[in-house]
């Protein structure tokens, strides 16, 4: 194992498990500043997690073991998804491979567990959010797969490491297919992390919730798992964007610097986007994602117009 792989492994675990809540904190903080408020500190999510960790739970009646296991399943599949991510084009082999489709499958498993828990409590608010989340996922997964086709074109592989390597090739700068994938991936980020205009993460009105809805009945450590998973999903999506979409330098150290800067920049972009954009109607979101699909197909056409591989 080379030093770079080892360092990548450390970033995977430390950045993903410990650093992810800071992204959410940063976005919240910046958003408050942009709106002229002082806002909570960047470390607020950590404080909330600590508070939740010390609290006892609440088990709603009725419930079955599915309600109890769901937060653990969501957190476990998110942890495994973290370990598949490339960091600076490297990543230790945890025995899990580095396949993009496996990562999507793990995220789907987390979503399945959370929405099933919503059914288990019979809470109408939870199901409202769950049903919307599943409806979005149909369009998000279709779009995400098209983005992956575009990003896999240069090296003919869905291995995240080689896809990340493809982003270091100098010619990606001049390929419209790559930029189409970049724009479409931005839509995927917004939808998957539940940010405006798709979903409003700061809402306290149950009727408008999407991703928070199924979390309503949870408390204590189980809620801590779910909140951490939501934060870790930000990390996963932003790191994927930086590794696969942003053109990267070749050397490992420079790549890690680009990764850090990219995650920071994208967090700022999300905060700005949330400040200037109102939440859109739930039923219009598929239209937004559909425009991403059209863009991807244009990108594919441009690939062949440019002479292919």
């Amino acid at each position: 194992m080379t030093l770079a792989t080892l360092a990548a492994g450390v970033v995977q675990v430390v950045g993903g498990v410990l650093g992810a809540p800071a992204i959410v904190g940063l976005i919240q903080h910046l958003k408050a500043r942009l709106q002229g408020r002082r806002g909570p500190s960047v470390l607020q999510p950590y404080r909330e997690l600590r508070r939740l960790w010390g609290k006892s739970g609440v088990t709603p009646e009725p419930h079955t073991f599915i309600y109890t296991v769901a937060p653990a399943v969501a957190a476990a599949s998110t942890i495994l998804a973290l370990l598949l991510l490339p960091i600076g084009g490297h990543g230790p082999d945890w025995g899990l491979g580095h396949d993009a489709l496996v990562l999507i499958g793990l995220l789907a498993l987390a979503r399945f567990a959370i929405t099933l828990a919503a059914w288990d409590t019979t809470s109408g608010f939870a199901l409202m959010g769950g049903a919307r989340d599943l409806m979005f996922s149909v369009f998000v997964e279709g779009l995400l797969l098209l983005v992956l086709v575009l990003l896999a074109l240069p090296l003919h592989s869905t291995d995240l490491l080689s896809m990340s390597h493809a982003a270091t090739l100098p010619e990606v700068w001049s390929r419209p297919a790559h930029w189409a994938a970049a724009v479409a991936f931005c839509l995927v980020i917004v939808a998957e992390t539940g940010r405006q205009p798709v979903d409003n993460p700061d809402t306290h009105l149950e009727l408008t919730m999407v991703h928070e809805g199924p979390l309503l009945e949870y408390a204590g450590r189980e809620l801590a798992y779910l909140q951490w998973s939501a934060a870790a999903k930000h990390w996963i999506m932003l790191v994927l964007a930086c590794e696969l979409v942003i053109p990267n330098p070749v050397s490992f150290a420079a790549q890690v610097a680009v990764l850090g800067g990219g995650v920071l920049l994208l967090s700022v972009a999300l905060a700005v986007c949330e400040t200037v954009q109102a939440k859109m109607r739930v039923l219009r979101v598929p239209l937004l994602l559909g425009s991403g699909v059209a863009l991807c197909l244009l990108g594919l056409a441009s690939w062949f117009a440019g002479g292919g591989g």
Binding site: S56, P60, E61, V102
Partner: peptide
Amino acid sequence: LALALVALVGALVRLARSRRAAPAPTW
């Protein structure tokens, strides 16, 4: 993948269950 999932889920459930939980009707 399967082994890691099962092991992680088991460990996380154990961690969460070490706290007492009070029953309450769904809101």
